[in-house]
């Protein structure tokens, strides 16, 4: 018995670590929905939810319970297997990506060398969930949403990939931990400065990649109602919802890791504030929240792009900028203008 336990121990330990990542993540997702409603509420001179618990603090739990107990209606003429599997296919990659994210120098589930590649491939997988959902629902609205989402996610992945190539060039590694350690030494060493255009390209593509305002044509509330998930109710809808918000968090985390020094304190290298006082995880979470806030801010402010305009922005503006800046980075590295 003991021998068996000893043999299984690494597995149990990994499962424990996975739970330690996924449980807080789902909690953050739940409270991100509340934060969204509150922040947008205050931007729009409303109060947002404030009836469930103090200041509406229990609202996400009430929403979750409601969705859990709602009937999951499956349209008669849908392709049932795909219809059911689609939300799972969209949530799983969103959660899988967290496996390679280093929260601090020590806290990382899988410190693999191809971390960036893994994240990009998982991000590409997410599109299948949306595509299948739109196709399987057998609804014109959903079909339009799926078509839009696919075109958009595929083209923005290219821009996003190019933007990350800049980071890889400067850091010389695909391991996320190494990338962060390259940025050690305070604010001025963060990659966002030499790679500022890349960061802008990355952040715009990231918003498009997650189908959020102003690029939310896949949902297109006022045009195609809810797009690919128009036929989903109950838990199926909840899974899409979770996937969307989990994706928002992961791309924010990625932005922090790639361009804003991950868990590193911005005050490193300044004598007055030594970074040691605050644990790295706090800096990481704070930076991620900053990016998440910008998501909500954009959503409250900007009108929605049209589908073809998004394509134009992606192919004709973002990709050329990214490619151009790659050349410039190459030159900068060649002439030793930036440390590698």
């Amino acid at each position: 018995m003991n021998a068996l336990l000893l043999e299984l121990w690494p597995l149990i330990w990994i499962v424990f670590k996975v739970i330690c990542i996924v449980a807080p993540l789902l909690l953050v997702v739940a409270y991100l929905t509340l934060a969204e409603r509150k922040v947008i509420g205050y931007i729009q001179r409303r109060l947002g939810p404030n009836r469930v618990g103090i200041l509406g603090i229990l609202q996400p739990i009430a929403d979750g319970l409601k969705l859990l107990f709602k009937e999951w209606v499956i349209p008669t003429k849908s392709s049932k297997f795909l219809f059911i599997i689609a939300p799972i296919l969209s949530l799983v990659p969103a959660l899988l990506m967290w496996a390679v994210v280093p929260f601090t120098q020590e806290w990382v589930l899988a410190n693999i060398d191809a971390g960036v590649l893994f994240i990009l491939s998982m991000a590409s997988l997410g599109v299948y969930g949306i595509l299948l959902a739109g196709w399987a629902s057998n609804s014109k609205y959903a079909f339009f949403g799926a078509m839009r989402a696919c075109a958009q996610m595929i083209s923005y992945e290219i821009a996003m990939g190019f933007a990350l190539i800049g980071v890889l060039m400067v850091s010389g590694s695909m391991n996320l931990k190494t990338i962060v350690m390259h940025q050690a030494g305070g604010v001025s060493h963060w990659f966002v400065w030499p790679l500022f255009p890349m960061f802008m390209v990355y952040w715009i593509s990231a918003i498009a990649e997650t189908n959020r305002a102003p690029f939310d044509v896949a949902e297109g509330e006022s045009e195609i109602v809810a797009g690919f998930h128009v036929e989903y109710s109950g838990m199926g809808f909840a899974l899409f919802f979770l996937a969307e918000y989990a994706n928002m968090i992961i791309v924010s985390a990625l932005a922090v890791l790639m361009f804003f020094g991950g868990w590193l304190s911005p005050f490193e290298g300044f004598k007055l504030f030594s970074g040691a006082a605050v644990p790295g995880i706090i800096w990481f979470v704070l930076k991620v929240f900053l990016f998440l806030f910008s998501y909500l801010w954009f959503r409250a402010t900007l009108p929605r792009y049209r589908y073809d305009q998004i394509m134009r922005l992606g192919w004709k503006i973002l990709i050329p900028i990214a490619i151009g800046w790659i050349v410039i980075i190459g030159a900068m590295i060649q002439f030793n203008w930036i440390e590698v």
Binding site: I40, I43, Q44, R45, R46, A213, P214, D216, E221, S222, R299, A300, T301, L302, P303, R304
Partner: peptide, 16 residues
Amino acid sequence: AALDLGAMSVFLYCFR
């Protein structure tokens, strides 16, 4: 019109 094109906040400012 703003709401239809996705600019939510204008709608609520107008309603104020």
